[in-house]
């Protein structure tokens, strides 16, 4: 199996995730797109672990899983906080900090 199979699939997923982060207005959908990006990076790490014939890449993938779980927990808590204060999670309405 060629290594580029995994790496190109990861690149496609990464680009789709970046598009989602830019295009989406709903904060929960943006967090989902971030998950796409994180998963593509983990796919890369596992593929690199196969290429270099060591398990370090898999360990880093497990670290990324833990970080992603923490990120989603805090991110959704912040989204809930914003919703409670403003009754909306549309990201383009959060412009109070603009000068």
């Amino acid at each position: 199996m060629l290594a580029v199979n995994f790496l190109i699939l990861a690149a496609v997923l990464f680009s789709i995730g970046v598009f989602g982060v830019i295009a989406r207005r709903n904060a929960v959908m943006v967090l989902m797109s971030v998950e796409l990006v994180l998963n593509s990076v983990m796919l890369n790490l596992v593929a690199f672990s196969q290429i270099t014939d060591s398990i370090d890449g898999q360990l880093f993938a497990l670290f990324v899983i833990a970080i992603a779980a923490a990120e989603v927990g805090v991110g959704l808590a912040m989204v809930l906080m914003v919703y409670r204060n403003r009754r909306s999670i549309a990201l383009d309405e959060l412009s109070e900090m603009k000068g």
Partner: peptide, 13 residues
């Protein structure tokens, strides 16, 4: 569900 400038994402991606 999308931003008004969502089309900007396509060339970037």
């Amino acid at each position: 569900l999308n931003n008004s400038s969502w089309g900007l994402g396509i060339p970037v991606a």
